[in-house]
Amino acid sequence: MHPAPSVILFTTFSGLGFGLLFWLGIGMPGPTGWVAFTFFAIAYLMAVGGLLASTFHLGHPERAIKAFSQWKTSWLSREAWVSVAALLVMVVYGAGLVFWGQATVPLGLIGAALSLLTVATTSMIYTQLKTVPRWNHWSTPALFLSLSLGGGALLAGQVRFALPLLSVAATVQIIAWMTGDGRFRGRGTDIGTATGLGTLGRVKAFEPPHTGTNYLLREFVHVVGRRHSMKLRLLSLLLGYGLPILLLMLPFSHIYAGLAVVAHVAGILASRWLFFAEAEHVVGLYYGRQ
């Protein structure tokens, strides 16, 4: 899949943002006043910023409101509802903390749940796609959720939780990569079933329908070199998980914490790039890819 910056930024930052909101919602930490304001501002910047970024790849962002209509079938629509609900609930909850120093616990818990649900719906947008076997697997929501929780914990300063959660996320990430690499083949979808010609012999794409490029090739057919991908995987493991975990294990310092966050974000951006770039869409089969 085409690793579009807008989707990479969206999934990374909204994941972090909603992760932070989750922790804020369950009162860990439970700041008030300006501190609360800062925490919420960061969370909203990330969550809303991510959502906004996602609208950049829309052909008609001005019609985005229409995306609320299909919650019955569409994960994207559900994400729209849940994210807005999460943001609304948390704004009320946050306002309590900032202006009145009051934590309305049930509201916080509902907000936290909605925040997590948002991340889940986001992940389901990808998970549901049978056309992208790499994503079409439990590891996708597991990764999104563990990352969101872990990253959120990191941002929320919940070192106790961040350490195990990031370790879990790292493990899920590794599982996702390892199982993901063979999943396409494992599904039994190949150029033979794509064309129905597989029963006749070995099928090879001969001439594409056009010598130039098109939307499908730009959007779905992206080939990452194996070496390149290994390098990026290592880098993202190191930055996204290894370094933050290391830094968190050091005696607490704001500098280390800040560095941990920066490294984490950088690492996750890299892994998100891979998440898209390495995802093979079955349509590539028609063009002889895979």
């Binding site: 052909g59 019609r63 995306a67 056309t131 992208v132």
Partner: peptide
Amino acid sequence: CIGCGLCAWACPYG
């Protein structure tokens, strides 16, 4: 249509 592209992602046939 908001042009989100998701339907194209979901279509196996391009």
